[in-house]
Design a protein around this nucleic acid. Structure first.
Lengths: 153, 153
DNA sequence: TCGAACGTTCAGAATCTACTGAACATTCAA
DNA sequence: TTGAATGTTCAGTAGATTCTGAACGTTCGA
């Protein structure tokens, strides 16, 4: 019910995620899967709901699977498969994003090396960045653990 | 010294930041400002070092200023102004990124509303996402505080 | 074995974005 | 006041990205 409102929601979802670097079509798929009824949807259903080509759905869902954001499920007595979001999809997505903090820290460490003397005043700007990203990279897993514990996951 | 290595570093920096949604040229500017000597650079110097047009430098630096990543400085007895990265630039950048967590949480809350019954099993997927992003949005400032305290900032 | 439904891949079209460079504005030394 | 140096804006373009759709598997019921 109120299919149109849900379609609009998927569009909005795709828009926000596109600002985070995800292709709009894939964001729409994810958004739809967060609120659709039933929660598992076939490629054909997804293509119809979001007005996307079969190709986009196929490629998009492959990508969401790869990012551990969605998974295939099979319904008994039915051809092919359907997709659903993983229950803790967005958490997982954020954990993968954790790799970013490490990469940033490594990049900043390289910058410190380029300047040469770690203790030089002109190394300060990039040294602080290096330490900060390393700190964040280290703490993110703890945060996620804490959330999971407090929410019984 | 080793100007070329620093130029390559700026390129690499821009490349990584472009995966985070920043235009490559602006990432290059930021990367160069993290390691350049002297640490403050005029538009002309930036354009020369990074082979960018005056227009790109102007627009890019305006954007970095807006994001509180860089600021203008004036050298006595010199035309115009130069730019430098703020000492805690990347930390600030991350704090601004905090707004994202809030936006995501709001988006998920909208999804819960669309489903209607917050306690329904099919609302679980988006309810968890809502709570998770709210949790992260709330904790990020504390993390930053802790880092600053431990590093005398 | 056949055909219908479903899924995948990828070349090319459609679309969007970043960047340049030219026109214009501003600043300041002489 | 003049003009050289510098800074800004923005229309247009070059280039990259996303999306489609057609060609080609694959699966499975009959």
């Amino acid at each position: 019910m109120d299919r149109e409102a849900k379609q609009r929601y998927a569009e909005e979802f795709g828009l926000l995620y596109s600002t985070l670097g995800m292709p709009p079509a894939y964001g729409k798929l994810l958004g739809w899967l967060m609120i659709c009824d039933p929660p598992d949807q076939t490629s054909t259903e997804l293509a119809r709901a979001l007005q996307l080509s079969k190709g986009s759905v196929s490629t998009g869902m492959r990508m969401l699977e790869g990012a551990k954001l969605a998974r295939r499920v099979t319904r008994p007595g039915q051809r092919g498969h359907a997709y659903e979001v993983l229950p803790d999809a967005l958490i997982t997505g954020t954990m993968n994003g954790k790799a970013i903090w490490g990469a940033l820290s490594v990049l900043m460490a390289k910058g410190v090396e380029l300047i040469g003397d770690e203790d030089a005043p002109e190394a300060r700007r990039v040294r602080i960045a290096r330490d900060f990203f390393a700190f964040i990279a280290e703490r993110v897993p703890d945060l996620i653990e804490e959330f999971k514990r407090d929410n019984g996951l």
